[in-house]
Write a protein that binds this DNA or RNA. Structure first.
Lengths: 166, 166
DNA sequence: TTCAACTGTATGCAAACGCATAGAGTTGAC
DNA sequence: GTCAACTCTATGCGTTTGCATACAGTTGAA
C-alpha cells in the first residue's frame, strides 16, 4: 500500500463528514421557502453565469443525473424561475437563464444562506484554515490531470483491470 | 458584512465543488456491484463500529432522511447484509450490525474504493494538504460549539426571528 | 449527398426519497 | 400509579430520482 493511501482516505472521510454535517445543518434552517437545496443550487449556478448556460454545463456543477436535472429545470421553468431558449449554434441544445423572479428568489435566499455559511465556518476555522480549505477544494474540483471518462489518470497503480464492462 | 464572510463562503463553495466532482468520479467507477454509494456508506459506517449501532446514530452519519434510512436498512436486511436486533435497554430502539456477508461485501468494495480515493486525492494534493484537509474536515464535522436544534450558535447576527413555526 | 456514429436533451417506468404522522416505548411531574 | 410530553422507528403517500432508451440534431467519411 502506497504511503499516502491512508492520509488520503482520512482526508476524504473528513471531507465527507464535514459535508454531511453542514448540509444537514443548513437544510434544517428555515430559509429555503418553497425551494429545495438542490433547486437553490441550480438557481445559484445560473446566477453566476453572465450568459445562458447549456444543461450539460449545468450538469457538471450539480450532483444529479442528467434526466433528473432535465426535469428539475422543467419544473423551475413552469414555476417561472428559469427560462429555456433554443441554442442558435446547436439545434440540439437548450440555453438556460434566470428570469427576474428567479434572480430575485436566488438573491433573497442566497443572502440568508451566505450568513449561515459564514457563521458556521468561521465558528470552527481560523482565517488561515478558511484559505487552506478554499485552495484545497479548488484543486480537487479542477484537477490538473484530467481524470478522463472511466480511464485511470496516469497517477500510479490501479491493479484492477477493467473486468467485463457489463 | 463581517470580514470573514467572503472567505468562508468561498471555502464552502470550494468544498461543495470538490465534493460534487469527486462523488461523480467515484460513482462512475465500476466497483459498486449491486450497491448504491449510499448503501455502501451505511455498510461502511456499520463496519467501523464494534458494537451494533442504533438507527439514530447511523442517521447522524448519513445524509438521508430518517424514514429513507429506515427503509434502506430494511432493504439491506432483506438482502442479508445487515442484521436488526432489539435494543435490550430501550424497547423502542433497534440495533444494527453487519452480517458476515455484509462485512465481506463492504471489504471487497472498500478495498477498491480506497484505491480510487487515494489515487484521486494524491494526484491533486501534497502530503501537507492532505493533512490540512483532514484537520479542517474533522473540525467542521465535530463542532466545538454545538449548533443545537434550530438555534443560532452564539456566533453573531441573524436578523430573522423564528417566524411562526408553521 | 448520404449515412453511420455520435452528442445533447427528454421520456417511460420502477425504485427511492422526503414530509407528515402513526405507533410503541420511555420519562418525569404530580 | 397515572398521564402528558417526549423519543425512536416505521408507514402512507405524493414527488423526485436513476436507468434505460428514444428522439432530434451534428459530424465526418465515403
Amino acid at each position: 500500500m502506497p504511503a499516502r493511501t491512508r492520509p488520503a482516505n482520512d482526508a476524504w472521510e473528513a471531507l465527507l463528514s464535514a459535508h454531511a454535517r453542514l448540509m444537514k445543518q443548513f437544510a434544517a434552517e428555515d430559509i429555503w421557502r418553497d425551494l429545495s437545496m438542490r433547486e437553490y443550487d441550480v438557481l445559484y449556478t445560473l446566477s453566476k453565469c453572465r450568459e445562458p448556460l447549456r444543461i450539460g454545463e449545468l450538469h457538471r456543477h450539480v450532483l444529479l443525473s442528467q434526466p433528473a436535472l432535465s426535469r428539475m429545470v422543467e419544473r423551475l421553468v413552469e414555476r417561472g424561475f428559469v427560462e429555456r431558449c433554443p441554442d442558435l449554434s446547436d439545434g440540439r441544445g437548450v440555453r438556460l437563464s434566470l428570469t427576474a423572479a428567479g434572480l430575485d428568489k436566488q438573491r433573497q435566499i442566497g443572502r440568508r444562506h451566505a450568513r449561515s455559511v459564514a457563521s458556521a465556518l468561521t465558528a470552527e476555522l481560523t482565517a488561515d484554515e478558511l484559505r487552506q480549505l478554499a485552495t484545497i477544494g479548488w484543486k480537487l474540483a479542477h484537477p490538473q490531470v484530467a481524470p478522463g471518462p472511466s480511464r485511470n489518470d496516469g497517477a500510479s497503480r490501479n491493479d484492477e483491470k477493467e473486468t467485463s464492462p457489463k
